[in-house]
Simulated scan of single mutants.
Amino acid sequence: MPSLRHEALLELFRNRPVLAAELLRDALGIELPAYAEARAESAELTEAVPTEYRADLVVQLWGDTPRLAIVVEVQLSPDEEKRYTWPVYLTHMRAKLRCPTVLLVVAPDAGVARWCGQPLETGHRGFVLKPYLAGPESIPVITRPEQARQAVELMVLSAMAHGQGEQGAAIAETVLPGLAGIDEERARFYFDLVMWSLNDAARTALEALMSSGTYEYQSEFARRYFTQGRQEGKADALLEVLDARGLQVDEQSRQRITACTELAQLERWLRKAVSVQSVQELFAS
Rank of each mutant, 00 (worst) to 15 (best):
P87C: 08
M93Q: 13
A148R: 09
V156P: 00
L103H: 01
D183Y: 09
F191D: 03
Y225F: 06
M1L: 07
V106F: 00
E146A: 10
A180P: 04
L23E: 12
D183Q: 14
L12C: 08
I70Q: 03
E52R: 13
E44L: 15
H6A: 03
F13G: 10
L238H: 07
E52L: 11
E41Q: 13
P131M: 03
M1D: 11
T91Y: 07
I182L: 11
S212V: 05
V274P: 04
R5E: 02
E240W: 08
I139T: 08
E137D: 15
R203D: 07
L209D: 05
Q248E: 11
S212C: 09
E267H: 04
L154V: 03
P131C: 04
L61F: 09
L120I: 15
L270E: 03
Y35M: 04
A284W: 06
E44Y: 06
E47Q: 09
A27R: 06
A259S: 15
S197P: 02
L90N: 08
E31M: 12
L157W: 02
P100F: 14
V106Y: 01
G229F: 07
R203L: 08
Y215L: 07
L61I: 15
T174P: 09
T46G: 02
D250S: 08
G163Q: 03
C260S: 12
T46Q: 11
L45G: 01
F127Q: 08
R114L: 06
A187E: 08
P78L: 01
A34F: 05
L179F: 07
T91I: 13
V49C: 10
M93R: 14
Q277E: 12
R223P: 01
Y217R: 08
Q277Y: 11
E47L: 13
E11Q: 13
Y217D: 12
A69Q: 07
D56A: 02
A55Q: 03
L209G: 04
Q60D: 12
P136C: 10
L12T: 04
G181Y: 02
F221T: 12
E52G: 05
R224T: 05
A48T: 03
V102H: 03
G135F: 02
H6Y: 10
E184H: 09
P66G: 12
Y190D: 01
E153D: 14
L179H: 06
Y84P: 00
L266A: 10
L10M: 11
M160P: 00
E37A: 11
A36P: 01
R114S: 06
E262H: 14
A8Q: 13
D56F: 00
R256S: 10
D26G: 01
E207K: 09
L129A: 08
E262Q: 15
T214S: 14
T91G: 02
G29Q: 10
E31R: 13
P33M: 14
S77P: 00
L282W: 10
R230K: 14
V72L: 06
V112E: 02
R144F: 03
S278Q: 08
A148D: 13
G126F: 06
A244D: 14
Q60R: 14
A237G: 05
Y132C: 08
L10Q: 13
T258V: 11
E173M: 05
M210H: 05
A95D: 15
S285V: 09
T204K: 12
A259R: 14
V74M: 02
V279W: 05
